[in-house]
């Protein structure tokens, strides 16, 4: 069953197409990644899903209802965030809950406890650190127990501990059967968490499907290499993403990975060598640069 069905939506601002003829679906209970470089039109798509703006053409169905009726069943964490600075944590969350017609003190307290913020419940937002405010915003997005949760860049600005906390929360929501849409630039997170992705570039859909499916389209053309020394240009290697002592080598088609390994061992000390499908990050870059 699909929880979101988007068919052929387009939107222009000032005569300029921001989104053209996009179609995708999100299945009930999956974590869905909406990807794309900056300015690709992701936020516009999200705003249309939330009925904040309307598409010029095309149709959107969310939870099998039209958009106007479904606002209360969607949770939303915007990319750029803010809260009422003078309000207390509790008042903020209760207010946002009430606007979604679902205001439960019990649930609010439970979520605060889960995020380690229970003792801050009566503090003003302005007294909290940035990371804490971000967690409050994530709670605000799910305070009303929505069926569809839309998270725009949920990991930015979080330290590793809080990042894991948020990641665990997302997986927990998934296990509760919630449908989750994540829009993010963090490809490793997408790779680990998302069941399926949809990638847009300049307003057009360029990739759609499960991570495994998409990767298999690219074949095992990538070497993941851990090494000491200095990596030089190698024959048969189309592109090198060199991070110092870790590199991804993308091979030209028909090139044997063994031959590449031979030329590498003469130059550097190899600690790990793995032949695999390209990372989502590499696919992302290739799609964007190749387009």
């Amino acid at each position: 069953m699909n929880n979101v069905e988007v068919s052929h939506i387009s939107k222009s601002f000032d005569g300029q197409a921001v989104v053209s003829d996009l179609s995708f679906d999100i299945r009930a209970g999956e974590v869905f990644g909406l990807l794309g470089p900056n300015g690709a039109g992701k936020t516009t798509v999200i705003r249309m899903l939330l009925d904040i703006i309307r598409p010029d053409s095309g149709r959107i169905m969310v939870l099998n209802r039209s958009l106007g009726e479904v606002k209360d069943s969607i949770g939303y964490l915007p990319e750029e965030r803010g809260l009422y600075r003078k309000l207390t944590v509790m008042d903020t969350l209760m207010y946002f809950g009430s606007l979604k017609n679902n205001q439960s003190e019990e649930r609010t307290l439970a979520l605060l406890e889960k995020m380690g913020l229970l003792s801050y419940r009566d503090k003003k937002i302005s007294e909290l650190s940035k990371g804490m405010q971000q967690k409050i915003q994530i709670i605000a997005a799910i305070i009303h127990d929505p069926d569809l949760i839309i998270l725009d860049e949920p990991f930015t600005g979080l330290d590793p501990v809080n990042m894991k906390l948020v990641q665990d929360l997302i997986l927990e929501l998934k296990s509760e059967g919630k449908t989750i849409l994540i829009s993010t630039h963090m490809m490793d997170k997408v790779e680990r968490m998302c069941d399926r992705i949809f990638m847009i570039h300049r307003g057009n859909g360029v990739l759609h499907g499960s991570i495994g499916e998409i990767k298999s389209r690219y074949g095992k053309n990538t070497i993941f290499l851990e090494f000491d020394g200095e990596l030089k240009r190698m024959p048969g290697v189309k592109k090198v993403n060199n991070a110092g002592n870790y590199a991804e080598l993308i091979l030209e088609s028909g090139v044997d990975a063994q031959a590449v390994l031979k030329s590498i061992v003469d130059e550097v000390r190899v600690n790990k060598f793995e032949i695999s499908a390209p990372s989502l990050n590499e696919i992302f870059i290739e799609v964007v640069e190749g387009a």
Partner: peptide
Amino acid sequence: EEKENRIIEILLSSVS
């Protein structure tokens, strides 16, 4: 203020 700190997005995702 709501526009500046983007609360407006949360509000508009909840009410018309």
